[in-house]
Amino acid sequence: MMPTATAKPSTQTAPWTKKDLLGLRELSAGEIRLLLQTAESFREISLRPIKKVPTLRGKTVVNLFFEPSTRTRTSFELAAKRLSADIVNIATQSSSLSKGETILDTVKNLEALKVDVLVIRHAAAGVPHLIARHATSSVINAGDGSHEHPTQALLDLFTIQERKGRLEGLNVSIIGDIAHSRVARSDIWGLTKLGARVTVCGPPTLMPPQIEQLGAPGAGGAGVRVTHNVDAAIRDADVLMLLRIQHERQESMLVPSLREYRLRYGIDRDRLKGAKPGLLIMHPGPVNRGVELDSAVADGPFSVILDQVTNGLAVRMAVLYLVSGAPKGDEDEG
């Protein structure tokens, strides 16, 4: 795929040269735009009666999931299949170290089987980076600890752009457990690089130190706005992204109780009364109904939660396509 340079800087893409997709922090705005544009071109494949193209025929993709996941794993699996790649699912909840084998041993064994792409999910931050340093295959980060979840953020960007026609200048508020959220971090990088203004909102216990310094320099200066007041986060927002509150957070004294959290930060219809018309409600799933999001809002007219899932497929097809095509100069350029 050739980069399509135009006069308008906000639509400029950059050519894809990376072996791996590890996070959005290390991508340029142009690379992110290219990913979104490529996803756009793949979107209609899933709308065809025969949902398959031969683009990645002969490539082998491994879903290597060290942490349970249904939606991300399924999304990658279908994305690979619709591009005609062969895909193998490896789910291991026990750390391989407990069996005496290191992560790198596992990866070296897979590489000996001549695979092309490793899709990695792990509860520890940095595992895809460790693997990418030692692997010749392409590595896609499907979520590493509290660090990044780049394909989730890309599908978020895609969904917003699809609904709003742009990202630049939009106000996006991310509400919830920012400290432990890989989705929040990837979204902060992706959104700010494409010119959106990001506000993060949650109790101080769920806010990591110096979070305000994260993100690309934007219209409002570098970084993101932090507020602990959910009404302030809703007021000017074009998009609300809710994050799942894990039950364990209660045990580690990060929130006194889920009830207390719902009363302060839960989004229901009442809370949205003063919101902008056309507000989008997003959630990376799975939704904790009745905690961060009331069912009436989750299933309501503002919600684009299922669009996110649909778009995730196109985004993951784009990522698989770009990482397996770009660096190694394969003949199959689709």
Binding site: S146, H147, R182, R185, P208, P209, Q210, Q213
Partner: peptide, 13 residues
């Protein structure tokens, strides 16, 4: 160390 780098990397500080 708990600070900007741990926040960026999502590591416990």
């Amino acid at each position: 160390h708990e600070g900007l780098v741990s926040t960026t990397l999502g590591l416990r500080g």
